[in-house]
């Protein structure tokens, strides 16, 4: 019997990765708070989750092979559906849609959720360690 890390750690590893990625997107919004014509972006957890589960169900997008001599070709994903544009609450004169307060609160929220994912992941490791020690 072997320990499968993928099965033991569950979704928390991917969740941690998602939080780190979202931190990058929000950081970019805050850095561009004064850039004219910049449109604020955000990653949506629900869309990323749906995308990931769809990918694990049917594999990657690829061409059908009806003959053994066909060359296998993986499809290229154009665009990232989960990376959406934020809807602004009020218009601004320089067409910038960054609302600094909203971005800051999202960044703080994301940081707390990162900590939550980390705590879950850490407890999984602690569980594994105590299972190995057996005391």
């Amino acid at each position: 019997m072997s320990i499968s890390f993928d099965r033991a750690l569950g979704i928390h590893e991917q969740a941690l990765g998602f939080r780190a990625q979202r931190a990058e997107v929000l950081a970019n919004n805050i850095a561009n708070a004064d850039t004219p014509h910049y449109k604020a972006r955000d990653l949506q957890f629900a869309t990323v989750l749906a995308e990931q589960s769809a990918k694990s169900q049917r594999g990657q997008v690829s061409l059908n092979r009806t003959d053994s001599q066909h060359i296998p070709a993986d499809g290229v994903m154009v665009g990232d559906a989960s990376l959406a544009y934020r809807t602004p609450f009020h218009p601004s004169i320089d067409q910038n849609t960054v609302d600094l307060q909203i971005e800051q609160s999202n960044y703080a929220e994301n940081s707390v959720q990162f900590q939550a994912s980390f705590t879950f992941l850490n407890s999984k490791f602690k569980g594994l360690v105590s299972a190995l020690r057996g005391d």
Binding site: A23, I30, A31, A33, L100, Y107, A108, F118, N122, K126
Partner: peptide
């Protein structure tokens, strides 16, 4: 406005640093 924006950027960096330090304590 520029000074506040600078401050926000430093805070953002601080938060990212805390997140990374937390990851280093994994396990």
């Amino acid at each position: 406005s520029a000074s506040r924006a600078f401050q926000t950027n430093t805070e953002m960096m601080n938060t990212a640093k805390q997140m990374m330090q937390r990851v280093l304590t994994l396990g």
